[in-house]
Nucleic acid binder design. Structure first.
Ligand code: FES
Ligand code: FES
Lengths: 138, 138
DNA sequence: TGTATTTAGGTATTTGAATGCGCAAATATA
DNA sequence: TATATTTGCGCATTCAAATACCTAAATACA
């Protein structure tokens, strides 16, 4: 069914990976993470690339290579990751058709703005370090 | 950009139409409403079909035909319309891949559940009659 | 009865996200 | 140096939801 609160798989993958790399002693490669998360290796590789490009992770190629942290998990908020993968959350006009709407105030009131703000506040305050304790011992 | 709070155009159209039909003295046809809303006539027709099938509207074909209310605007909550068009809002598992996740509690905490509940509460309490006053005089 | 109007409903197209694929570049190690 | 491993990156494919189109059925009215 429809997802009211839409968080793409890419965002989830990014967050999961950052936490996994944080707790790993040696560098972690894409295939291993994909296996652990039960996700597509290809999709995950794309996400990791982004995280490297924006300096959350370092990568090393070649045998024994993989990804390591470049920022401390306490320095990374979930919001940064969200915005990196999805862009700033916007409220679109109900029906993207401009200003044809015959209603003076939006029929939705300001509920979307309110919920978006709540979401952002939560994600800004929550850090990768906060979710690390939830990792199951493997 | 990504819409965090996702409300399809179909939902917006349904709500707008119900309000417009409510204040109309005679029956309103799809083309007229599409023009007023600056929306696709075809898409709107689909939405109206649904509203007729579920007894919110009555329809009459032929010249001078169109749509009229079958329920009072004070009897219709926005939530009913949302659920009709989108289904019950569900929280999906982060990464629809089942139970492979190596985290014991979801990394998102319960923020999605919380926001969804807020949304539902708001939409349950708000009725078509509440938004009618916002219609601009045409 | 004929014609114009309007809804009904099935099907096709579009779109965007997710996924897959192939090859180049880097690097460890034998 | 040769080989296996692993990331980087562009492009192709798939898939589902949203949106558009097309024709049939109903009805008012001349
Ligand atoms: S578009 Fe938001 S109220 Fe009409
Ligand atoms: S899937 Fe929600 S925490 Fe891993």
């Amino acid at each position: 069914m429809g997802q009211l609160i839409h968080l793409s798989e890419a965002v989830s993958l990014a967050i999961h990976c950052l936490a996994l790399v944080s707790v790993s002693e040696k560098s972690l490669n894409a295939s291993t993470m994909a296996r652990h998360l039960g996700a597509s290796r290809n999709h995950l590789a794309k996400v990791l690339q982004q995280l490297v490009k924006h300096n959350f992770l370092s990568s090393t190629r070649g045998p024994g290579g993989g990804f390591t942290m470049r920022k401390a998990p306490g320095e990374i908020t979930l919001y940064e990751i969200y915005e990196l993968m999805e862009g700033k959350p916007e409220i679109e006009y109900c029906m993207a058709h401009g200003n044809e709407c015959p209603f003076s105030g939006c029929v939705y009131g300001n509920i979307r703005e309110k919920l978006t703000e709540e979401f952002v506040a939560f994600f800004r305050q929550r850090k990768i370090s906060d979710i690390i304790p939830a990792i199951k011992p493997s």
